[in-house]
Simulated scan of single mutants.
Amino acid sequence: MKDYSLKINGQNYDVQIDKVNETSTIAHVIVNGTPYEVEIAGAKGSVSTKPQVAPAPPEADSAQITPVTAVPSPRVAASAPASGYAVKCPLPGTVLSIKVAVGDKIAAGQTLVVLEAMKMENNIDADRAGVVKEILVQQGATVMEGDKLVVIG
């Protein structure tokens, strides 16, 4: 419902447009407390239908469905991870920076990757000491929960 204060020929009117029927040219209006059913001159009634969504066939694999407007995120070419412990992404986000390089010796608790998620910067830390064997993402990549980020050997 929309409320309006109108002044017509010096006379004040309080108007409430209560309901407009989209399939016709009729509107329900209240002027200074008196209800009216008003026909909108020049308007054309239209019948709008909601789009119907059909369920995907059972054999469809939703993991392979990509929206047409999707822009692929920059990623390092997929390769079999080196033997070692993979640090996984705890929540979906965007890689802001990578704080280590392949071959770096790291300590438990050291920040490996800075991830932007839910408009916050999150440090992804190593939970064990070791040597960085492989980095599986690059700056600017969009990552999902469970994606492997860094392999520690």
Score class of each variant (00 low, 15 high):
Pro74Arg: 11
Gly42Asn: 02
Tyr36Glu: 08
Pro74Val: 08
Lys44Asp: 11
Glu37Arg: 13
Ile65Thr: 10
Glu116Asp: 09
Val31Met: 03
Pro74Phe: 09
Gln16Ile: 10
Val38His: 01
Val137Glu: 00
Asp14Lys: 12
Asp147Ala: 04
Gly84Phe: 02
Gly103Thr: 05
Ile26Pro: 00
Gly103Met: 04
Val76Lys: 14
Pro67His: 07
Thr111His: 08
Gly33His: 10
Tyr36Met: 08
Ser79Trp: 05
Glu116Gln: 14
Val76Ser: 05
Pro58Ile: 12
Ala107Ile: 06
Pro51His: 12
Pro90Glu: 12
Val150Gly: 02
Gln138Tyr: 01
Glu116Arg: 04
Leu91Glu: 15
Val131Thr: 15
Tyr13Ile: 08
Lys7Trp: 09
Ile30Lys: 01
Pro92Phe: 09
Ile17Cys: 01
Gln11Ser: 09
Gln110His: 07
Tyr36Gly: 08
Val100Asp: 00
Val47Thr: 13
Ile135Met: 04
Ala63Arg: 13
Pro92Val: 06
Ser83Ile: 07
Ile26Gln: 07
Ala43Phe: 03
Lys50Leu: 15
Lys88His: 11
Ala80Tyr: 03
Leu112Cys: 04
Ala77Val: 05
Gln110Tyr: 07
Pro67Asp: 15
Gln110Leu: 04
Ala117Arg: 13
Thr69Tyr: 09
Pro81Arg: 09
Val29Leu: 08
Asn122Phe: 15
Glu145Tyr: 07
Met144His: 10
Val47Cys: 12
Ala80Arg: 15
Pro57Val: 02
Thr142Gly: 07
Asp147Leu: 04
Val15Leu: 06
Ile98Ala: 05
Glu145Cys: 07
Val53Cys: 07
Val47Met: 14
Ala126Pro: 03
Val47Trp: 12
Pro90His: 12
